[in-house]
Design a protein around this nucleic acid. Sequence first.
DNA 1: CCGAAAAACTGAACCAATTCCAAATTTGAG
DNA 2: CTCAAATTTGGAATTGGTTCAGTTTTTCGG
Lengths: 204, 204
Amino acid sequence: MSGLRAKHKADRHQRILEASAELFREAGYEGSKIEAIAAQAEVSVGTIYNYYQNKGDILVAIVSMEVNAVLRAGRGVVANPPTNVGDAIDTLIGIYVEHSLIYLSKEMWRQAMAISMQQPESPFGRTYTALDRALTDQICALIVRLQDLRHVSADADGRALGELVFNNMNMMFIEFVKQADATINELRAAIRRQNRVLLDAISV
Amino acid sequence: MSGLRAKHKADRHQRILEASAELFREAGYEGSKIEAIAAQAEVSVGTIYNYYQNKGDILVAIVSMEVNAVLRAGRGVVANPPTNVGDAIDTLIGIYVEHSLIYLSKEMWRQAMAISMQQPESPFGRTYTALDRALTDQICALIVRLQDLRHVSADADGRALGELVFNNMNMMFIEFVKQADATINELRAAIRRQNRVLLDAISV
DNA sequence: CCGAAAAACTGAACCAATTCCAAATTTGAG
DNA sequence: CTCAAATTTGGAATTGGTTCAGTTTTTCGG
């Protein structure tokens, strides 16, 4: 594929993405009709379906960008964690949840999760699952790092621990986006309390 | 409202529910058209919408019955738990997951969860959230019971611990229903491994 | 520069859930 | 038995995501 065609393709991808992101935030995911996205992006409805399998696919592209940004930010913590185990985990989780509503609304998160559940085998579903997996891996990496630094007992099952921490956080996050009036601070406090149970088991 | 009318109402509710359960299992949730349900239940489409707000509402009614059955079964374990803490939790979780696919398919679970996420404020969403809550409470009750019996240290945060166990199990269950080829035994083994981390922290 | 062939675009048609409505039926009270 | 209220019926209209057949654009060998 050469010049012009590739350029058009990139342009249109971008236009569709920008139009969608804008509309999703303004009118919500359900409130954004495909026709409206098409009009805003100055392409036809059919073209959108050339670029994305379905409406949900557009959403996942946006969610992916967000989660990848968070994963990058998390790397710093893993490389250089606070020496206190509780603080280390809390810092990483803080990065995740504090960023969560900057580009995405609660409704967008809910829709994204719902679609990944309905269609786990679709490209969308796979991508979303892969993102969850990457977050889990990052938490596990942090714990292994803390074990290397002798802040966590070496005979703890790092993988299991990381999964436990991630799964709990993720479930709490799900409840958070389901409740319109829940705040990020409440969420973090609740997770902190839950994690405290674990810390006793593993701190050196 | 007296006799006959109430009876008919109950009959129709029942017929719609049975027809739906059968079709959902045979053809899947998405594959079951409302018209087909109506035909099977021998009522008109309009009548279905008299009894249930939407298709998802029917599904939650079925899921509710299932979860309530599981909650009843769980009460026995809470009343009379195995003395070993790991066994106690494992037994309760065993009841939950072993029953999960008897009346519901993985697809039905996925749809139910997805809908509860998309519409957390709808009657459906509220009911589903309440069921999750009831399961959490039951796990917490088990742990408090074990504390009373001196099998779990009295100064552990029972509520936080129960939430952690439930949230982890629930997340693992979500992954389980997303993967077509995941087995219940694999699921239980994975959860057992994760819970082991916790047991060290709290066993007396 | 020309004329296929491939790729991409378009928007009207399709499908299934949901809503709406007027007519028919059933029920319960008097 | 009769009437009024409640409920059911089924078909038409609506809605919004998705598909598809036909058209336009882009590419590329000669």
